[in-house]
Design a protein around this nucleic acid. Structure first.
Length: 423
RNA sequence: GGAGAGAUGGCCGAGCCGGCUGAAGGCGCUCGCCUGCUAAGCGAGUGUAGGGGGUCAACUCCUACCGAGGGUUCGAAUCCCUCUCUCUCCGCCA
């Protein structure tokens, strides 16, 4: 959520920056309502001020057994008036809230302008693409032949976009989870957390999934619980409604969770294999930082995610998302794309974003500057480190051999009881 | 799921037969004084948010907030209702 005060004082500048997203945002209605809200606020507050003064007077008169009937009947009217104005204010605030919560974040000045993912810019590339002396197959075929992925039975259990991992397939995912968590906690300075996989509406709103993206989420019937689409949601909201001491910043958290997404609107896309599932495993890194440091921290965060791929020997590239492809809450995002021989293309495996104070304002996460009074909003960042299912896909496809077996990357063997290949 | 108790400022803890209580007292913290150092002692300060005024950082005034939301009342931390959470006991359960 953007700052209402900042918004009204920089209305032209903001709408110009937002137009780079290709998003049509009508800010005139916002200005109109905001002006109205403030004028009512002033009126209501001055009436309250009067009421408070007269109430003191009534209390004093009562003590002295004076006559208060005139004052009380006058205040009856004032009270009614206040009630009316407060009612109007809450109506208007609600509408205002509705408008503001649908306005996306302002792209950072270093974000390239562009309309779609075609305009994203590659910033670096790592690793040599594997050279096969046979035609590589995709992970779905490979996994089914190896008996480690069972899509038919996954669909039987739950439906389309669900799968069942078996034997070394299940072990591979578990190994990746442990490998990634160990790397981030022992070498990158993150503290591991294991959060709830369901959260309430307030928490979903704090990170920006609600109210705009309810259609992408699974909700548990007859409760206020939502299945998390990413660990970003519970982990960022750990500090919801809190004030952090400056010396505790930056805070690094990482978490393994399953993620649940409806994938509405992706019909016909990635219907094969593990690429796009309703449920998938992910390791997420989350940071809370001082505003001055957030962009430096974004670079480090992205590098932490890349390190996972380097250790696993998986070729990748990093792209910076253009203004038109940027997520709703993000000010700047790097996508890391891993090479998939089965698709002969790079596919997203991590998304690392700086939300600046957009989520912090919604979730009300602040910090107190040492030696200064007042509080400031923290900056929040997060990135996948990495999507586990897609990492498994990348390993199967990049490490496949002519006989249909798959080599296990060196770094992972200790996590798989020394196994060097599947089978 | 059933019965009961509770939720007050960074923390502890009064107030709860309605009216100078943003909130006693204590602890903590900050600044100053005192003191060879430390400790003790003395003095002052110490929440968040929104808004108005302003030679618009540091000034000033106002409003709101005692778990959340609603109600009664001229006036609610105090009375009533609903909800959430915590604790104790019972039941159930991995």
């Amino acid at each position: 959520m953007l700052d209402v005060k900042y918004l009204r004082e920089n209305i032209d500048q903001v709408s110009q920056r937002l137009s780079l997203r290709g998003e049509k945002v009508d800010l005139s209605r916002f200005m109109e309502i905001e002006e109205h809200r403030r004028s009512l606020l002033v009126k209501g507050e001055s009436l309250k001020s009067e009421r408070n003064k007269v109430n003191d007077e009534i209390a004093r008169l009562k003590k002295e057994r004076g006559d208060t009937t005139g004052l009380i009947s006058r205040m009856k009217g004032v009270s009614d008036e206040i009630k009316k104005i407060d009612g109007r204010i809450s109506e208007i605030s609600e509408e205002l809230e509705g408008i503001v919560s649908f306005i996306p974040n302002i792209p950072h000045e270093t974000v390239p302008a562009g309309m779609s993912d075609k305009d994203n810019i590659e910033v670096r590339k790592w690793g040599a693409l594997p050279a096969f002396d046979f035609t590589p197959v995709d992970h779905a075929d490979l996994g089914e032949k190896l008996g480690i992925l069972d899509f038919a039975r996954g669909a039987k259990l739950a439906g389309a976009r669900f799968s069942l991992s078996v034997g070394a397939g299940a072990q591979l995912e578990r190994a990746l989870i442990n490998f990634m968590l160990d790397l981030h906690t022992t070498e990158h300075g993150y503290t591991e957390v294991l959060p709830p996989f369901m959260v309430n509406s307030k928490t979903m709103t704090g990170t920006g999934q609600l109210p705009k993206f309810a259609a992408d989420l699974f909700k548990v019937a007859e409760t206020d619980y939502w299945l998390i689409p990413t660990a970003e949601v519970p982990v960022t909201n750990i500090y919801q409604d809190e004030i952090i001491e400056e010396e505790d910043l930056p805070i690094y958290r990482c978490a393994y969770t399953p993620c649940f997404r409806k994938e509405a609107g992706s019909y016909g896309k990635d219907t094969r294999g593990l690429i796009r599932q309703h449920q998938f495993n992910k390791i997420e890194m989350v940071k809370f930082t001082r505003p001055e440091e957030s962009y430096r921290e974004l670079e480090k965060l992205t590098d932490n995610a890349e390190e996972v791929l380097r250790r696993l020997g998986l070729p990748y590239r990093v792209v910076v998302l253009c203004t038109g492809d940027l997520g709703f809450s993000s000010a700047k995002t790097y996508d890391i794309e891993v090479w998939l021989p089965g698709q002969n293309s790079y596919r997203e495996i991590s998304s690392c974003s700086n939300y600046e104070d957009f989520q912090a304002r919604r979730a009300n996460i602040k910090y107190r500057e040492k030696g200064k009074k007042g509080t400031r909003l923290v900056h929040t960042l997060n990135g996948s480190g990495l999507a586990v299912g897609r990492t498994a896909v990348a390993i199967l496809e990049n490490y496949q051999r002519a006989d249909g077996s798959v080599e296990i990357p060196e770094a992972l063997r200790a996590y798989m009881n020394g196994r060097t290949s599947i089978p």
